[in-house]
Amino acid sequence: MRAISFVRQFVEAALAIAIAPLFTGWIAQCRAWLQNRSAPPLLQPYRMLRKLFLKDVALATGASALFRATPYVLFGTMVLAAAIIPSIVTDLPLARVADSIALVGLFATARVFLSLAAMDIGTAFGTLGARREMMIGFLAEPALLMVLFNAFLLYGSTSLPSLVDGYRAHLSVIDPSVIFAALAFVMVALAENARIPIDNPSTHLELTMIHEAMLLEYSARHLALVEWASSLKLFNYACIGFALFLPWGIATHGADGAGALLIAIAALIGKLTIAGAALALIESLSAKLRIFRAPEYLAMAFLLAVLGLLVHLLVGA
């Protein structure tokens, strides 16, 4: 019994590591289609990673150990987070290690490490990117926490597996607060993953970049790990969103045989396909905000989440 859950745990983490770049590739493809460009192949991110792993690292002269350790730390935290989030099964040995609040903390750890590494070389862009990233982070994190509070009010737990199991038990019509929470979550997820209204993942325009500015000094295998970690982060956010709002198909505690597992994997891939297309659509429809407008955008997400809490307390009760 215990052994099988460890096997599931391993399968889930391995699956996350394996398909996270695919998800990124799928989004890039959808974006290209929507924008009437010829799309890159679906497996482009893997080729990219392979190329990067084979190159020699060009390391800036002043780089400290922190700078070299950060890609590994980023990748480590993201893999761990992927192992904790119930993307296909809820009965995971690691799932009790961190509830959703601790997951937010884990993401914050990754963000702080990346920002510190960006400041390490001491170039103007690195520090600029670090500052902006932390600014986005400190506005996005409270909004995310409020979304989680909302989930706690609905299902009485902050632990994601319990949330998914609890959702099965309730299965009522949508609570009004969920609309607010889901909107806020999507806004936060876009901002946290350097997506379009806040940051453009495919630009190196100096004045506007955030995420890319921090990676300027990274090359070869370090860059590969950071990129992989970024796609894992996006994947993780998607899975948190599924666990919170669309938990259909996830194999719950007690009903997780091989068949349920296969259904869960199929459901996950289906949800990721739709979510990726939706993300590409949002990105194609909206314009990137000026950096000064970013606080406004995130404040809106934050207020939406709080509003969700209030609506739940007042109408739902």
């Binding site: 350790a69 590994y72 730390v73 990748f75 480590g76 935290t77 893999v79 761990l80 192992a83 690691l94 009790r96 290690v97 961190a98 509830d99 609040i101 601790a102 884990l106 009485g156 737990s157 902050t158 632990s159 319990s162 790990l225």
Partner: peptide, 23 residues
């Protein structure tokens, strides 16, 4: 336990071991 749980030790060990394996 169903409501919320946290383990600093496993988290620390987890990060360190994943980092080591990755390295």
């Amino acid at each position: 336990r169903e409501q919320a749980s946290y383990s600093g030790l496993i988290l620390l060990a987890g990060i360190l071991s994943v980092v080591a394996i990755t390295f």
